[in-house]
Computed example of a mutant assay.
Amino acid sequence: MKNSKYLFILSILLVIFLCFSIFTCTSKSKIQIALVTKFDKASTVGESEILFAKFYLEQNPKSKIKIKFYDDGWDPGKAQTAFNDILKDNIKFIISSDTSTAILAYYDKLVKEDIFCISCGATSTMLTNKDDNLFRIIPDLNYEQKQIANYINSLDGRNLLLIVDTKNKNYTYPSLEYIKQHVTNKKIQTLFVDGELFNIETVKKSLSGKKYDICYFIVGSGMVKIGVIAQILYNTNKHCQFIFTPWVISVGIAMTLGSAIDNCTFSSFYQSPDDNKDFDQLINVFKSKFGFSPTITSYKIYEAMQILDRAFSNHCTDPESVKRYFKENPYQKTVLEEIIFNEYGDCISDIYFIKDIEKIIR
């Protein structure tokens, strides 16, 4: 009896030990990633990206990723502080939704460290064609603006108004110069505005009595208020066509556009969900779970996690081997699109043009 009792206790202890070992091994197999974004109570940006990252892990329970979130507010000063915190925490992988202005604030430090970073939002050509440890899953602004310029050139109408945000100058000002050089068949006028703090009456005065056939908003992420400017212009230019960068696609911009929405075309990193059932399902599941549609950068974070997981699953678990993996495998299929890297880790995927924004934001 005593032997049986001892054997039973020993069996219980063995089971506990095995469970602990499995748990420990599983925990150790997770690779910590820093997700750097903007926590802003006044917008859905941070909330959307955090929830979408957690949503990815829920949908992929075998993921090797463990996430720690860092708030830099897309502010250059805060971005440097966040990066220093990541160094202190000894994290070797970063997914960043930072704007060009924010990421350039710590870029010089980044390239000196043993860290691999995937950028979901920095399009500056100052980061282009560099053999570094920063890979981008969005096109640089020249590649992006080239496709938008070609689209504008194809439109009827002669008079083009460029509305340029002054907040994110590392993106908008070079984009402006590119458009001015490559839109060759339009008469161009320019209006500079602070995309977040512009004065409506001042804008009305600037646009009063003017006639435009096309209006292109050169603005970055989170600038939903600029839809009001489209409304103002639409009231006196019913035929005017409004073009937007991929970064403004959101429920917020749809709400501020009013009646002008029927005249809008959005450049987009993605085809319509009508043409991608996986994309369509992803939007529906997320919205039913959280009650709102994710931001564009949230989709990009999901993709970044997916391709990093793929690299980790192929036994690439340090920055150098992950970089080598993407160089050797530049075509990365995700649930949303196919990301294509060039030899420098810059994205050369296509831009699409969508008129029905509700198919993406619904």
Results as ranks from 00 to 15, higher is better:
Glu201Met: 00
Phe242Cys: 08
Ile243Met: 14
Glu196Gly: 04
Val219Trp: 05
Thr256Lys: 02
Tyr212His: 10
Val203Tyr: 01
Leu197Val: 02
Lys204Cys: 03
Val251Ser: 14
Trp247Met: 06
Ala260Ile: 03
Leu207Phe: 02
Ile214Gln: 06
Ser208Leu: 08
Lys211Glu: 04
Met223Asp: 14
Val228Met: 01
Gly227Pro: 05
Leu233Phe: 12
Leu257Asp: 11
Phe217Gly: 10
Ala230Tyr: 05
Glu201Phe: 00
Met223Glu: 15
Trp247Gly: 02
Thr256Leu: 01
Ile261Ala: 04
Asp262Gly: 05
Asn235Cys: 01
Pro246Phe: 12
Lys211Cys: 08
Asn199Leu: 03
Ser221Glu: 13
Cys215Glu: 01
Val251Phe: 11
Val251Met: 14
Gly252Phe: 09
Lys204Arg: 09
Tyr216Val: 03
Cys240Pro: 09
Gln231Arg: 14
Gly195Tyr: 06
Phe244Lys: 11
Ile243Ser: 14
Ile214Thr: 11
Val248Arg: 04
Phe198Ser: 05
Gly209Lys: 01
Cys215Pro: 02
Gly222Leu: 12
Trp247Ile: 00
Val219Phe: 11
Ile249Gln: 15
Thr245Met: 12
Ala230Thr: 06
Lys211Ala: 06
Phe244Met: 10
Gly209Asn: 07
Lys238Gln: 10
Ile226Lys: 06
Ile261Tyr: 04
Ser250Glu: 14
Gln241Thr: 14
Ser221Thr: 14
Met255Asn: 13
Ile226Asp: 08
Gly227Ile: 04
Ile261Thr: 00
Ile243Val: 15
Gly252Gln: 11
Gly222Met: 13
Met223Ala: 14
Gly195Lys: 09
Val228Cys: 04
Gly209Phe: 03
Phe217Ala: 09
Asp262Arg: 06
Lys225Cys: 09
Met255His: 05
Asp213Ile: 01
Val251Gly: 12
Lys204His: 04
Glu196Arg: 05
Lys210Val: 07
Trp247Arg: 07
Gly258Phe: 03
Ser221Leu: 11
Tyr216Leu: 08
Val219Asn: 13
Glu201His: 04
Ile249Tyr: 05
Asn237Cys: 07
Leu197Met: 00
Tyr216Gln: 11
Gly195Ser: 10
Phe242Trp: 11
Ile226Phe: 07
Tyr216Glu: 11
Tyr234Val: 04
Val228Thr: 15
Gly220Trp: 00
Ala254Phe: 04
Gln241Tyr: 13
Thr245Lys: 08
Ser206Glu: 12
Gly195Cys: 10
Gln231Gly: 12
Ser208Glu: 03
Glu196Met: 02
Glu201Asn: 09
Glu201Ile: 00
Glu196Leu: 08
Gln231Lys: 15
Asn237Gln: 08
Thr236Cys: 07
Phe242Gln: 07
Asp213His: 08
Leu233Ile: 12
His239Lys: 15
Lys210Arg: 12
Thr236Gly: 05
Asn235Ile: 06
Lys211Ser: 02
Gly209Thr: 02
Gly258Ser: 06
Leu233Asn: 13
Thr202Lys: 04
Thr236Pro: 06
Gly258Cys: 01
